[in-house]
Design a protein around this nucleic acid. Structure first.
Lengths: 125, 125
DNA sequence: TTCTTATTTAAGCAAACGCTAAAATACACT
DNA sequence: AGTGTATTTTAGCGTTTGCTTAAATAAGAA
């Protein structure tokens, strides 16, 4: 039934079929996980998330200051993070404060606060 | 000393400086973490990692079969993962078996096996 | 209202990405 | 040697990314 790429005599078709099914079952989760990881997989955006995890709330120009980058570039990264549901915006006057949103935080937080295994991402308070 | 993007009268320069220092300290780790996440942030590659976590070892054409993709495309993704130190290759005859390498596994494994919190990525054996 | 300030948006562009198709390499078998 | 299989590599191409610059919104302050 399934078209093989190679002619493996001893290839176990059973295992391959099993993998296909497991993959199909996990597909939607993997898809949304990949989207979040793609967002966090950019160094600038990962730094933003790191800073937001530390500071709760930061405005655009704070981030621009800390990251030493163009305000426009920062704003565009923030937009992507917001569109991905990773952060949320709160406007206070003319300044917009961004903070981590609950969604996907369970995947991001352990990455940026490696508990005891990896030593140094969380500075001692 | 630090050039501000905005003229926030009540901006606390102290906090900003603090963030800068924390960021500088975490920078190398964030950089390598971002590299790994960028690799995992591609849906095809994330699926590969998911399958390798489940099956320990898979050859190129197995992956091509399961993912229903061109062998060449698969091979190119595998190369990126190998270059990033995420997987390793073992050649057995003419077939090359790929498996997860120890490096970075501590960050990838929890993503793909969400323990108890998120329910369904790990199918019941 | 006019003048700043904070942020977003749009346009442009170089670089990176991910795929396809084709050629190259490597290994086994006869 | 020659044939077939598994994998990699190369070149090409369309798409996406991430930045810069400039213009557009939005909201205080004079």
């Amino acid at each position: 039934m399934s078209s093989s790429s190679c002619i493996r005599v001893f290839a176990d078709t059973a295992h391959i079929e099993q993998s296909k099914h497991r993959l199909a079952a996990a597909e939607p989760e993997l898809q949304s996980l990949a989207a979040v990881l793609a967002l966090a997989g950019n160094e600038v955006r990962l730094k933003m998330l790191f800073l937001l995890l530390d500071k709760q709330q930061l405005c655009v120009c704070d981030l621009a200051d800390v990251l030493q980058m163009n305000v426009s570039a920062i704003s565009q990264h923030l937009r992507k993070l917001k569109d991905g549901g990773v952060i949320q915006a709160r406007k206070v006057g003319q300044t917009v404060f961004y903070s981590l949103s609950a969604a996907h935080l369970s995947v991001l937080q352990p990455l940026l606060t490696p508990a005891s295994t990896s030593p140094s991402l969380t500075p001692a308070r």
